[in-house]
Amino acid sequence: MSDYDNAIFRLATAQEAEPEDYTGEDGLLYCGSCRQPKEAYFPEGKTFFGRDRHPKECDCQRKRREMLEASHREYKHREEVERLKRTGFTDPAMREWTFENDNGKCPQMHKAHAYVECWEEMKAGNIGYLLWGMVGTGKSYFAGCIANALMEKEVSVCMTNFALILNDLAASYKDRNEYIARLCSFPLLILDDFGMERGTEYGLEQVYNVVDSRYRSGKPLIVTTNLTLEELQNPEDTAHARIYDRLTEMCTPVRITGENFRKAKAREKMEHLKKLLNGKEICL
């Protein structure tokens, strides 16, 4: 729009003068609060329905408008983040797996921060993580932190596991290709608890189809597993070998060595129970 067209728009959407407003020596209306003009003259020779001036934002109006626009942007942002988390997580509890809620006991958590900070480079280079380590060391939480942080940046992420994927594929025989294509459409796919699914011939074939399709999509993949790196590098048969080869090519191994938080949680509960019982005779 030209300056003249903008001026016409402001004239059409003008608000009434406030009681404290006043007319300046130049004949224009001024804001009684910020003392800035709320009107401006049209370019020389131009008028609109006989008027030689049009409304103009004073500092007060500009600040109010900017606050409203910022509030609207934040509302739309929170709405989008909510949609991403609703569709991207298979378990609502994953929403709480955030950097803010981290207990600080995972020595490798800085790698999760780095992944989020360098997301554009990770995406461009098709770089993922293969998170491996003992049970209960926080591998899933590590991946969840990445997912939540990227969703806060309005990046679409899917965090699921093969047990759910295989169930979905079995229930939608005619739409398998469409289902796998949807998984591969997410900028980041996280496969949690890899290796825990049933090892049937059908199951392995579907696992390979998902992993291979993700490989060919050129998009990053993050996998968490209780398998050791040695097990992944020395598969038991050809069916596992072709899956593991794809994973190790796509994902950089990161060993998670945090304390077993499940055992730690159990100890905390036991200590709390002992305090509640306060020496009462009961077999624990």
Rank of each mutant, 00 (worst) to 15 (best):
M109Q: 13
K56W: 02
V254Y: 08
E79G: 02
L166A: 06
L166V: 10
C118M: 10
A12W: 04
D168Y: 06
T238A: 15
H113C: 13
L232K: 13
D175E: 13
A266S: 10
M94Q: 12
Y141S: 02
S213Y: 04
S172Q: 10
H113T: 04
K123A: 01
Y208D: 10
M122A: 09
S172G: 12
E120C: 01
P187I: 13
R64I: 10
D168N: 10
C60T: 13
Y129S: 00
E231Y: 12
N234A: 06
N167P: 01
Y141W: 07
H113E: 07
G138Y: 14
T87D: 06
E152R: 14
V116Q: 13
G45R: 03
M134D: 15
K46L: 15
L284F: 09
G144P: 01
N278P: 05
S156M: 10
G199D: 11
E271R: 14
C158Y: 09
T90E: 13
N177K: 14
E152M: 05
D102L: 01
H272W: 06
Y129E: 00
M1T: 15
H54A: 14
F142N: 04
S156H: 02
N278F: 08
S213K: 11
F261K: 07
D192A: 00
S33G: 02
R262Y: 14
F99K: 15
L277N: 14
I180A: 02
W132Q: 02
W132A: 06
E178I: 09
L273E: 07
K56L: 07
P235C: 11
R267I: 13
E66S: 09
P43S: 08
C118G: 06
H110A: 06
M94P: 03
N148A: 06
F162K: 04
S156F: 11
E66F: 11
D91T: 14
G128S: 09
K85N: 01
L204Q: 13
F99H: 07
L221F: 00
V207Q: 04
L130Q: 03
N126Y: 07
D193T: 01
N126D: 09
R10F: 07
P19D: 12
H240C: 03
G125N: 10
Y129F: 03
L191V: 01
M1C: 13
T90P: 00
K111N: 03
S156N: 08
Y115N: 00
A12P: 00
D26H: 11
P220E: 12
F9A: 12
E96M: 15
K76M: 11
L188F: 08
E80H: 11
L204F: 11
K63L: 05
L221W: 03
P253K: 14
I282Y: 15
E20V: 15
L188M: 08
A171R: 15
L183R: 04
M250C: 03
D102G: 00
T200S: 08
E230L: 02
D59G: 09
C158Q: 10
V81N: 02
C184I: 07
Y244R: 05
G138F: 14
R246C: 05
T47S: 14
H110Q: 05
L28F: 07
I127Y: 02
A241G: 04
L221C: 00
Q36G: 01
M94F: 12
D168Q: 11
Y115P: 00
D21Q: 06
N167K: 13
L188H: 05
